[in-house]
Structures are given as structure tokens and as C-alpha cells.
Design a protein around this nucleic acid. Structure first.
Lengths: 229, 229
DNA sequence: TAGATTGTTAATCGATTAACAATC
DNA sequence: TAGATTGTTAATCGATTAACAATC
């Protein structure tokens, strides 16, 4: 409705990465709001729901364009559309999962990623006992077929749910086959060619960061390994 | 060996959070190095392995104390010890997992967190069909027992691998029972009392961030949904 | 002594946020 | 007009990194 400003968008401003990391969170909240039939939202409300500063919300949203109405707020549906457009979620990015263990299965079945723009189109494993079994609606394929599959189907994103020892080699194969982004769950730092985007999710690292904060808390009182209440 | 500088450490400097987030990565790399019998490492080498700037490595390590040797580098074993000390990993932080689905199981079994200082001491689920089944060496307990268990055993950290709809309520219970930190896998922003540390891992958010980068890449060439090679 | 590498300074860059004019 | 809220400016804060004296 407001529209058009940069509908043609000939040259694209780069959005600061801190803002890119928050936009999906706003999107999530706005989608939830829409289910409660909320049609308008202010930066204050959105900030409260996202646990951030209202000025930050306005600044982040300003990178999308000037889509708010002073004195009123933002139209939820329109903002959802604009965030999706900016993040490239109007396109579906074909995704495959490598590793059909608990984690790979959780991601494939549980993730509900299809609804968020990331259809998991295949899952692979090297273990012949897993090949042929079902994970959600998919049949586990042999790792040997992975490279061809990526090339033939134009897969964009690879999710690595394999052991650390295998991660680099699988990553190399995926990149050679044309994948542009990797989501890596193995606790190793991957070496990649330039231009490939990697995001790491290391559950051990997350816990260790929490451990640090637990320690800080324990410090005020005395013994760290005791419960304080 | 160098030791003692702040072995008593009466007042503790706060380490910048960006550095806290990287220390576990260095720890991982150093542990791997130790397996290859490497006893000394320079900031340059460590930086290459961690994919960061060498000056950043030195600065990060300087928050631990001055444990390097000019002209030589750092002793791997000693650095491992110091990072563990700083992150509070010399203590074991009792951890429970809530939700015994694929994700909860992956975390419990797969994680190998015990070896990294976070023994998963129990797993809970609300589904009576899951209660009593085994996940690794643990038996799934009924969610009803969770609060008592946390209080009696002095659990420090709760991992939320439950559906979005249940996450806030489980978080409230855990906090009331005395847990200090939460690792949340549900795609919701949790509301917590002050002093509780929360880290969120939202796999959908990670993918959406990758989607943005895929889009940027696609832009130089033309059509985003086609494969470029 | 010559070579190597740390630890730290200081410059730079990016992120956050209070404040407020613009405007619905 | 009065009240509300955006969009943006500018101040501040924190993170990054080049450079180099200190020193093994």
C-alpha cells in the first residue's frame, strides 16, 4: 500500500549485520502477533516483545525503508512482507541436511523450516543402515549421491549434522557442488572458499558461555558448586 | 608454571562479552591441538585455526592474564587450564534437558557435554508414552517431577527442547526452582526475572540469516531461484 | 646479537541509544 | 489542537585491529 519506494531497488544498501541478525526475531514476533489479529504495532510494543530498546527497533526497521506511520505505528502485515522481502524469504532456498542422526532428524522433521522458506529437500547419511529409512516425509539417501543431487537440484544451503571428523570433508564436497551457505553443527572451524557463508551452532559453546555466567553469579556468594537457595 | 599472578584473584575483571563468546572456540582448538601433541602455539597459528585476526587472539587471551612468552608463544596445556578456569569449567554445572524428542535426545546423547563440564543429569517430558523410555544412559522422567528434582539436586542449567507453546511455562518453573541459566531452542523470546541468563538457539533464525546472504550473492547475477553454475 | 612473538596502545570502525523535530 | 509515535541525528559505548615497544 505505501509501497513502491524501492520496489525496483536498483542498488541495494547493505544492512548492518547486527540488524540482519535481529530481523528474523522481529519477523517471528510479528507472525505471532498476526495470529492474534493484531494489525498495528508500535516500536515500543515490538521492543517489549523482543526484549530490546525501542530506538533499536526503529533503527533496524528504518533499513527496510520508511514504512511506519508517525503517531500510529507499523502495519503488521506490511512489515512482515517487507522483512521477508529484505531477508530474501519471498524466495524458497533449497536446503539439504547431511547426517540422519538425532540432530539431523530433529532439524528435518521438527524444524518446520519449509513454512519459513527453507524446504528440506533431501537428507543424506553415510551409514548404510540408515540409508533408505524414513525421516519425516523424506527417505535417507546415500552420501555418494549428495554431490550430484546438489548440482541437479540447485541446492542453496547445506546443514551439517555430522561428526566433527567428517564435517570439513562434507563441507568441501558441498561447496564444490555449488552450495552457497552452510549451517554447521559440528564443533570445528570450517575452512571455506571466499564467498561461502558459514554459520556455526555449537551447543557445547553455548553451554560454556552459560557456565561463565553461572560462575559470575556464584562469585557473589561463595561456593560455586552449591545451590544458593 | 608461570602461574600465581591472580591465583587468589580477589576481585575479578569482567571480560568483554565478545571475548567470552570466543574463548570456548579457542578452547576447542587447543584441545584438538593437544591431541596432536602440540605443546606450544603462537597467536598467529591460533588465529589461523580460529579464522580470526591474531591481534584479536592476543587481546582475548590477555583478559585471562599474561600467560604467553614473547618470542615463543603460549603453552597449550597451560592455556587450556586458564581458559577453563576463567570460563568456570573447572566446576561441573549440573544440566537437565526438558523435552525428549529428537532434539532433546540429540542434545542428551550426542552432545558429549559431560566431557565439556556439563553433565546432563536428567531428561524430562510431558508425554506419558515417552516417560520411562531411555535416552542414552538416562530414563525419561515425568515433567511433574522436574521442580523437585531441580531443587533437590541443585541443577544449574536448563535446556529447553520443548514446543514454543510450552517454553515460557517450563522456563518459569525452572527459574522458580532455582535454575540460573537457560538454553532455549524454542522460537520464542522468553521473559525471565533479572539475573537469569538466557541463550537462544533458533535454527530457523540461523537459516533466515543465511537466506539473506544467499540473496546478496544472487543479486550480482540475476535470478535468485536459479543455480548459478 | 638477531629473530620471533607477546602485550598493549591508540586509531578506527560499528553498534547502541537518548533525544527530539517531524508529522500523523 | 493535543497526543502519540516515527525517523534520524549525534553522543556514547564497545569491538576490532594495525602498529610497535618490550622481551624472550
Amino acid at each position: 500500500m505505501t509501497a513502491s519506494n524501492n520496489a525496483t531497488s536498483p542498488r541495494r544498501r547493505r544492512i548492518p549485520s547486527a540488524a540482519v541478525n535481529r530481523l528474523p526475531v522481529y519477523l517471528q514476533i510479528l507472525t505471532d502477533l498476526q495470529l492474534t489479529e493484531t494489525s498495528q504495532v508500535s516500536s515500543d510494543q515490538l521492543a517489549a516483545l523482543a526484549n530490546v530498546n525501542a530506538a533499536k527497533v526503529r533503527k533496524d526497521l528504518s533499513y527496510l525503508g520508511t514504512y511506519g506511520t508517525r503517531g500510529v505505528g507499523y502495519e503488521v502485515a506490511f512489515l512482515i512482507y517487507q522483512i521477508k522481502r529484505e531477508l530474501g524469504l519471498l524466495t524458497e532456498w533449497k536446503t539439504i541436511v547431511v547426517g540422519a542422526g538425532n540432530l539431523g532428524s530433529a532439524i528435518t522433521v521438527n524444524g518446520g523450516f519449509a513454512s519459513r522458506g527453507f524446504p528440506v529437500v533431501a537428507i543424506f547419511d553415510v551409514d548404510p543402515r540408515k540409508v533408505g529409512t524414513h525421516v519425516g516425509e523424506l527417505t535417507v539417501r546415500n552420501l555418494d549421491e549428495m554431490c550430484d543431487f546438489v548440482r541437479v537440484n540447485g541446492v542453496h544451503i547445506g546443514v551439517l549434522a555430522v561428526p566433527s571428523t567428517a564435517a570439513q570433508s562434507v563441507a568441501d564436497d558441498l561447496i564444490a557442488a555449488g552450495v552457497g551457505s552452510l549451517l554447521n553443527f559440528a564443533p570445528v572451524v570450517l575452512t571455506t572458499t571466499k564467498g561461502v557463508t558459514v554459520r556455526n551452532v555449537d551447543l557445547g559453546v553455548e553451554l560454556q558461555i552459560l557456565g561463565y555466567h553461572e560462575q559470575l553469579r556464584g562469585q557473589a556468594s561463595s561456593q560455586p558448586n552449591r545451590i544458593s537457595v
